[in-house]
């Protein structure tokens, strides 16, 4: 993969447990890139490594997990070799992170205007007044005009959707090149969910942001993202154009994720279940990790771990689904 011109370029990223270096990695040999103005969606079940990858990009891996190999470049600069001090300057300034639960990410005792202004001043300097004015402009930009004027509001006074808008304003405060949104709407109602993702997509377009959107819902990924990357048990199993992806996924796991979703109006048939559970990192099967749950499985799948191949989309499967399903 060429990394020229990519806002985010990750290659060969491997994450594993610190204590047990012989254990199989939690995320293995993951490579992807996101260009300016592009949205890439990470899709997969809980435990597939979506959030860990996001944490690794920001240098915020939880205790006990470390990067074993791989490079992470933002605008051409390697982040993995930066000191914590230098990395702290990158976070917030060049890349913003939006969490699933804004209440844990926002300070409960500081007004939201003040929080955004502080973030801005830490990274960009300037006067308090200028930073406050910038915070108000940002709040207005994310559709919170009521919070942009007059006195400041505390996070607890806001609804879940409003808090998530504040998070977006905070993430976008210093004009970052990259925003990573980790399940930003999981706790929200459908209407609010649509509003938040519309807003994110608008910022992506208007400001030319590179966005990584993490979700377990293939529908949301298909609706908002340009490209989709499906993760299973720590490995990329398929990556491709969002539209093509939904009509003709090649990896049986991608297809299973798609077919598990009920449609409107209902078709009347049963939903397709994915039998079994994702494997524990400690007990990964030999060969393809999806083999024990796969409808297309063959004997060869249990021996060799398939490599990524390109045919319409990039996928790692020995017995892929037909090109048009």
């Amino acid at each position: 993969m060429t990394t020229d011109g990519l806002t985010l370029a990750v290659s060969g990223l491997t994450l594993g447990l610190t204590r047990d270096r012989r254990a199989r990695p939690l995320v293995e040999d993951l490579s992807f890139g996101v260009a300016r103005g592009e949205m890439l969606a990470f899709v997969g079940e809980s435990g597939s490594g979506k959030s860990l990858t996001a944490a690794a990009i920001f240098g915020l891996l939880p205790a006990g997990v470390q990067r074993i190999a791989g490079s992470i470049r933002v605008n051409g600069s390697e982040l993995t070799t930066l000191s914590e001090r230098r990395l702290r300057a990158w976070r917030g300034r060049d890349m913003g992170l939006i969490f699933q639960n804004p209440l844990t990410a926002l300070s409960p005792s500081v007004g939201v205007q003040a929080q955004i202004a502080e973030t801005y001043r830490v990274h960009k300097g300037g006067t308090r007044d200028a930073a406050r004015a910038r915070a108000r402009a940002l709040l207005a930009e994310v559709g919170l005009k009521a919070l942009a004027t007059g006195g400041d509001s505390y996070p607890h006074q806001l609804s879940g959707g409003m808090r998530q808008r504040v998070m977006i304003a905070l993430a976008a405060a210093c004009d970052p090149a990259l925003i990573v949104a980790d399940e930003p709407t999981t706790a929200l109602d459908v209407l609010i969910q649509a509003q938040i993702l519309d807003l994110l997509a608008r910022l992506q377009r208007e400001r030319g942001l590179a966005v990584v959107f993490i979700t377990h819902d293939l529908r949301l990924a298909a609706r908002y993202a340009d490209r989709i990357l499906v993760l299973y048990a720590g490995r990329a199993v398929e990556e491709g154009d969002a539209a093509q992806f939904f009509t003709a996924p090649r990896h049986p796991y991608s297809r299973a994720l798609r077919d598990a979703i009920p449609t409107i109006p209902a078709t009347g048939g049963r939903l397709t279940e994915i039998p079994g559970q994702p494997p524990e990192p400690r007990a990964l099967p030999a060969g393809c990790r999806f083999a024990p749950r796969c409808p297309n499985v063959g004997d060869d799948c249990r021996r060799t771990e398939p490599a990524m191949t390109f045919d319409g989309t990039r996928f790692a499967c020995l017995h892929p689904c037909a090109k048009m399903s």
Partner: peptide, 24 residues
């Protein structure tokens, strides 16, 4: 409005009407 906000299986199509209800 609820229906329009529902993530559909139609890829690459953001909603036409921005969802309503801002000030609950």
């Amino acid at each position: 409005a609820l229906l329009a906000a529902q993530p559909s299986a139609v890829p690459g199509r953001a909603p036409k009407d921005p969802a309503p209800a801002m000030n609950p």
